[in-house]
């Protein structure tokens, strides 16, 4: 069993602060391999989006470093799912409280993968995405956006959604509304597939075909090649005048 990970982030061409936060961890444990790969895309006024995303990433990072080893002794995916859910909801309350106390509105998306040996869990809230790249590219998460909800309800086509001024409006994220319902799913890791997690800034101006062409598991197999290709795609995105911060992380397991 071998895990490979990589991460890249860029402030982009127009923002003054990079509000994205990233956590990529890979560990060898008594029970086998474990990894945490996640992206938080912060948003908010007064440049506090980076605080919301950092807070979520630090919380998960601390959990991985200090708690996971104990939890692995009696590992249960159901309990792990519940624990992630509680953590996200607790962070949501904390960030909302901070916003109220300081008169600012801040929030963040949170999307990631927790892997233990050949199984995985995905957690997701907001409009960052997880893609699986094997013989084709497949989006594993569903955007929590207004336009996506309208498409699902049959009120809007994909083409209309691309032009709609509300296309970036989120229906849920951490730090905005009291009640959140993150998507948490469980599954088996496909050996030799590449998993990509990216912020919306990464994928606004490039197509899924371009992502697959650049990061296909046949081409990109090592940590250094992942990093190089992610950087290449980020430069492409910047050359196309994307206005947002741009972040992406990759994960691959072979067994």
């Amino acid at each position: 069993m071998n895990y490979t990970v990589a991460a890249e982030t860029d402030i982009g061409i127009s923002k003054k602060v990079n509000q994205d936060s990233i956590c990529v961890k890979n560990a060898r444990t008594k029970q086998g391999k474990a990894a945490l790969v996640m992206i938080c895309d912060g948003m908010g006024g007064l440049s506090k989006g980076e605080l919301a995303s950092a807070e979520v990433v630090r919380s998960f990072s601390d959990w991985f470093d200090y708690e996971l080893a104990y939890e692995l002794e009696n590992w249960s995916w159901r309990d792990a799912g519940q624990s992630v859910l509680n953590r996200l909801r607790s962070l949501n309350s904390r960030i909302i409280g901070y916003g109220r106390r300081n008169g600012v509105q801040l929030g963040t998306t949170a999307t990631g993968i927790i892997a233990v040996n050949n199984n995985m869990m995905t957690f997701h809230i907001g409009d960052s995405r997880i893609y699986k790249l094997s013989y084709r590219i497949k989006q594993l998460t569903e955007d929590h956006t207004f336009v996506n909800r309208e498409i699902k309800n049959g009120n809007m086509t994909s083409e209309q959604a691309k032009r709609d001024p509300r296309r970036n409006a989120l229906t849920q994220c951490i730090g905005v509304s009291g009640d959140i319902t993150p998507d948490i799913k469980f599954g088996t890791i496909e050996s030799g597939a590449n998993y990509l997690i990216c912020s919306d800034g990464f994928r606004h101006v490039i197509t899924e075909e371009e992502i697959f062409g650049g990061l296909s598991p046949n081409i990109v197999t090592t940590g250094s090649s992942m990093k190089a290709k992610l950087r290449e795609l980020i430069e492409t995105v910047k050359s196309r005048k994307e206005q947002d911060n741009i972040s992406a992380v990759m994960f691959r397991a072979e067994y």
Binding site: V5, V24, S93
Partner: peptide
């Protein structure tokens, strides 16, 4: 279910010796 605002279990904040971090990338901007 209710949100517990405190961690469920208090454990010493010490990394275990049988838990070896191979990659450890945390990027925050504040």
């Amino acid at each position: 279910e209710e949100v517990p605002l405190q961690p469920a279990k208090e454990r010493p904040r010490v990394k275990r010796s049988d838990f070896i971090l191979i990659d450890d990338i945390v990027i925050v901007h504040t």
